[in-house]
Simulated assay, not measured.
Amino acid sequence: MNEFDLIAKYFTRPNRALKNADLGVGDDAALMTVSAGHQLAVSADMLVAGRHFFADADPERLGHKCLAVNLSDLAAMGAKPTWFTLSLALPSIDEAWLAAFSRGLFALADQHEIELVGGDTTRGPLTIAIQIAGEVPTGQAMLRSHAQIDDDIWVSGPLGGAAAAVMHRTGRAQLPAEIAQQCDLRLDLPQPRLVFGQAIAPFANAALDISDGLAGDLRHICQRSQCAVQIWIASVPSAAQLLHLPHELQLEAKLAGGDDYELCFTAPQSARTNIEALAQEHGLAAQRIGVIIPHGDSQPLVQFLDTTGQSMQFGFGGFDHFKN
């Protein structure tokens, strides 16, 4: 099997009518039209074996995850996904691996009616690169730079489950088998909050998805919006499985653990009723966890407060690809 056989067998769907593109896989470039009154939202992510996922990861789950993390970026913008490209570096052609990987990839793509329109393949260390695009009504995207002083800070669901899975797999913690399997689902099969992201966009100001941990990701909003945040530690929702970890690791998992892909967003206090109703409508346990405040010269961007209102200092931060 050569490169073109691989693409034809596993990543071409010749009998499928394109819904979101004018021309897909097979030419030198894809063609698509953006709907009137909309902007094109584009994002890209690269996943490297041993860095972003365990080298022995189940390929079907990996196919799901590599697309899910890109869909999550569009969810954070309030965008509706339309198409994506896929580039693969493979150590060798393993047909069983490719069949499972493409099965997981296309199952999620079909769920969200998104088209694979092109990409590339080559030989090399296992690396998966996806570029994704979607549409958002002009001027309505949620931006990291739009947080306002006194905004509420929300998360769309419990945090720390994926981090607990990593702690277990790397030997930092020991979880009961059933609990470890539940955490594995959070790590391997994240659920992008696309519909919820589109629903809250008219009410929210700033947003991002939690990929590198709450503590680290919140700094991006602070830096872009020139503000600081106060987070009430007791209000940050924890994955139920964290109760099986020591207290210190519970805090680290929910405040600094990555791979949750829940949305973190800010909204004016007047939007509380709307957001609570939307969360209930979408079956999400969204929680208000803090507030946007002015940034003073001597204060940290992200302040974690205990139940008495005292600031707590931690030695952990978000994930950094060149430090961690």
Rank of each mutant, 00 (worst) to 15 (best):
L18C: 04
G160H: 12
Q303Y: 05
L251H: 06
E178L: 10
I149K: 01
V25N: 05
A204G: 00
L249P: 04
L194I: 15
F101N: 07
L143Q: 05
S145W: 00
P268V: 01
A253K: 06
A177F: 09
D110K: 06
I153A: 13
D184I: 05
S35Q: 15
R219C: 13
S225G: 11
L88A: 08
L71D: 11
L263G: 01
Q303G: 02
L243F: 01
H220S: 03
I289E: 09
A173P: 12
Q230K: 13
R144T: 05
G296H: 15
P294I: 04
Q280A: 11
G124T: 13
L90C: 05
L194V: 15
L249D: 15
W83S: 11
L88R: 13
A173Y: 09
S35W: 02
I292T: 09
G318N: 03
P202R: 00
R13W: 13
Q269N: 02
G26P: 04
V25W: 14
G124Q: 09
A100I: 03
W97V: 09
R144V: 03
H321W: 11
C227F: 03
F319G: 00
G290M: 08
A99T: 15
L243Y: 02
A180Q: 11
S92I: 02
T138Y: 10
H247V: 14
A30Q: 01
Q287F: 04
L243K: 13
P300T: 14
A277Q: 14
I130F: 00
H52N: 15
G104T: 07
P91D: 14
I153R: 09
K9A: 15
G171K: 11
A173F: 07
P158R: 07
L126G: 05
G139I: 07
F11C: 06
F304H: 08
Q111I: 09
G160E: 12
Q280D: 10
G317A: 10
R172V: 12
S211K: 04
G63Q: 06
Q181I: 02
L189A: 08
P190D: 10
T12V: 13
F314I: 05
H52Y: 04
G197A: 03
I210V: 15
T138D: 02
F314P: 05
I231A: 04
A133Y: 05
A36I: 03
K254F: 13
G290C: 12
Q287E: 15
L40Q: 03
D320G: 02
F106W: 12
F196H: 06
G216K: 04
L175E: 14
C66I: 12
E115A: 08
I221Q: 02
I233A: 10
F316W: 15
P158E: 12
A240R: 04
I7R: 08
Q181K: 05
T122H: 07
L88Q: 08
H168V: 06
S235L: 15
Q313L: 13
A68S: 11
H52V: 01
D45E: 10
P81V: 07
G118S: 11
R123D: 14
A165K: 09
A228Q: 10
R16K: 10
F319C: 01
L263V: 04
I210H: 05
I231W: 06
V229I: 14
G157S: 12
H52K: 04
Q174D: 12
